[in-house]
Deep mutational scan, measured.
Amino acid sequence: VTLFVALYDYEARTEDDLSAHKGEKFQILNSSEGDWWEARSLTTGETGYIPSNYVAPV
C-alpha cells in the first residue's frame, strides 16, 4: 500500500477530482497518469484524482 499525506488543501474542480484537506492520508491507486494521481481517501473512502504535487509520502 502506497500512502501519501496532503500537504495543502485542494478543492475538487471536476467530478473526477477528489478534494483533500491538509494532513489527510491517501492510498495511491494509480500514479501513471502524470501530474494527477488516482487516490482513495483513508478518511472518507472516496476515490478520485488529486494533484501529485499536493501530497508527499508518509
Results as ranks from 00 to 15, higher is better:
residue 40 R to C: 09
residue 55 V to D: 01
residue 20 A to F: 15
residue 27 Q to R: 08
residue 12 A to F: 03
residue 57 P to R: 07
residue 55 V to Q: 00
residue 17 D to T: 13
residue 54 Y to H: 10
residue 10 Y to V: 06
residue 40 R to K: 12
residue 35 D to Y: 13
residue 10 Y to R: 03
residue 39 A to G: 04
residue 16 D to K: 15
residue 7 L to M: 08
residue 7 L to K: 03
residue 52 S to C: 14
residue 9 D to N: 07
residue 17 D to V: 12
residue 12 A to R: 08
residue 23 G to V: 00
residue 28 I to D: 01
residue 44 T to Q: 01
residue 20 A to H: 04
residue 56 A to I: 12
residue 33 E to C: 15
residue 6 A to C: 11
residue 50 I to M: 03
residue 19 S to Q: 07
residue 10 Y to S: 01
residue 35 D to N: 09
residue 22 K to Q: 08
residue 4 F to M: 10
residue 41 S to K: 07
residue 44 T to N: 05
residue 25 K to H: 13
residue 15 E to S: 13
residue 37 W to A: 03
residue 40 R to F: 07
residue 5 V to S: 02
residue 15 E to L: 11
residue 20 A to P: 02
residue 57 P to N: 05
residue 4 F to L: 07
residue 21 H to I: 11
residue 13 R to H: 10
residue 42 L to D: 03
residue 30 N to E: 07
residue 13 R to G: 09
residue 56 A to K: 09
residue 9 D to W: 05
residue 51 P to W: 08
residue 46 E to T: 06
residue 55 V to K: 00
residue 21 H to Q: 11
residue 52 S to R: 13
residue 47 T to S: 09
residue 1 V to I: 12
residue 26 F to Q: 02
residue 19 S to N: 10
residue 53 N to A: 14
residue 22 K to W: 05
residue 54 Y to I: 15
residue 28 I to Y: 02
residue 46 E to Y: 08
residue 21 H to S: 11
residue 43 T to L: 12
residue 26 F to Y: 04
residue 42 L to Q: 06
residue 25 K to M: 15
residue 25 K to E: 09
residue 17 D to H: 15
residue 14 T to K: 12
residue 48 G to C: 06
residue 52 S to M: 09
residue 20 A to V: 15
residue 32 S to L: 12
residue 15 E to M: 11
residue 49 Y to E: 01
residue 46 E to W: 06
residue 30 N to G: 09
residue 50 I to H: 01
residue 27 Q to K: 06
residue 40 R to Y: 08
residue 31 S to Y: 12
residue 6 A to I: 06
residue 53 N to R: 13
residue 26 F to E: 01
residue 39 A to L: 08
residue 12 A to M: 04
residue 44 T to A: 01
residue 41 S to M: 03
residue 24 E to C: 05
residue 4 F to T: 05
residue 34 G to D: 12
residue 54 Y to A: 14
residue 30 N to M: 07
residue 19 S to V: 06
residue 18 L to C: 05
residue 10 Y to K: 00
residue 2 T to N: 12
residue 1 V to T: 13
residue 26 F to W: 03
residue 51 P to V: 03
residue 32 S to E: 10
residue 33 E to N: 15
residue 22 K to I: 11
residue 47 T to P: 00
residue 1 V to G: 14
